[in-house]
Amino acid sequence: MSQLSGGPFDLSGRTAVVTGAGRGLGQGVALGLAQAGADLILVGLPGSQDDTAKLIVDLGREAQVVDLDMSDHDSVARVGVEISGSRQIDILVSNAGIIEREDTVDLTPESWNRVLDINLSGLFFLTQAIGRPMVERGNGKIVSIASLLAFQGGIRVISYAASKHGVAGITKALANEWGGSGVQVNAIAPGYMATDNTSALREDPGRSKAILDRIPAGRWGTPEDVAGAAVFLCSPAADYVNGHVLVVDGGWMAR
């Protein structure tokens, strides 16, 4: 992807699709891309993206909202083709995901499938649909939101860990397959972030202290921390970064 006149991090003239942008990390990433100059297509459950769309418009960028249940794979593939057919998509950031906490001995097939259907299969089928035109024309940026649990096992979140290991695997496999066509495929592995997904941990004094004691930065991460990494990976500055899972964790993995 060629560098624009505004500099290596300028996304002016680009259109980005972001899933799960209604709050938390997804909203932070969408706003970060808009601040860098991109127009946004926000994909998620009905009514969940409207506030983010208003914030993007306030930044002077275009924002389109597309309703989609990421667990409905036929709809994911169809909507992905429709989005790509309506305009050139330069960037895809797949953030939508869920987590369910329970003892593995009690895990039901329904719970397992809910997490994998959204976090892994839905992500893949949307990436396939939107990535196909990128490969055909020879440029594009794809960034998936993984997790530290792409490297670790976690506690009582086996389906989430499996899904995020899978996201890392998809990232590397697609980088191998699509890198030669000018499409960079990477992922971000956020550390412990102050979002809804970590509310149970942050509300547990013992767990919260243990986590913060291990993080060299001494704090929970924020959506803005992830947004900066996303802008980098979606920009011309990252044209030679491919198949990488970028850890944004305040130093957790270094300790």
Rank of each mutant, 00 (worst) to 15 (best):
P223G: 12
G26S: 12
K54T: 13
I145L: 15
S199Y: 00
R14Q: 15
I211Q: 06
A189Y: 03
D58T: 04
P236A: 12
T127H: 00
I98P: 06
G7I: 11
Q35P: 00
W220V: 11
D50I: 11
G251W: 13
A150H: 11
L11T: 07
L126C: 06
H73T: 11
V66I: 15
A146R: 01
G122L: 04
G179L: 10
A217L: 15
S86A: 15
V183Y: 01
V245R: 03
C234D: 06
Q27S: 12
D10H: 03
L25E: 09
I211W: 00
A189E: 04
L45C: 00
H244S: 11
S75H: 08
R23S: 15
A21G: 12
D58N: 14
L33E: 03
D90I: 04
M134G: 11
S94W: 00
R137G: 07
A200N: 09
G22R: 08
S111W: 00
N113L: 09
S159T: 12
D239C: 07
V135N: 04
I130C: 09
E136V: 08
I215T: 09
S94R: 05
E62I: 00
S111G: 01
L33R: 06
L68D: 05
D213C: 04
D74G: 03
S2M: 13
L25P: 01
C234S: 14
S2N: 15
M1N: 13
V115G: 10
G28R: 10
D67H: 13
S144E: 11
G85R: 08
A189R: 06
N242Q: 11
P205I: 08
S86H: 10
G20Q: 08
V248Q: 05
L31Q: 04
A34F: 10
I41Q: 07
Y160T: 03
E102C: 13
P236H: 13
N186G: 05
F9C: 03
D90Q: 06
R207Y: 02
P216T: 09
E102I: 01
E110R: 14
G166Q: 08
D51V: 13
D90A: 10
G251D: 09
V29M: 14
L42A: 03
G20M: 08
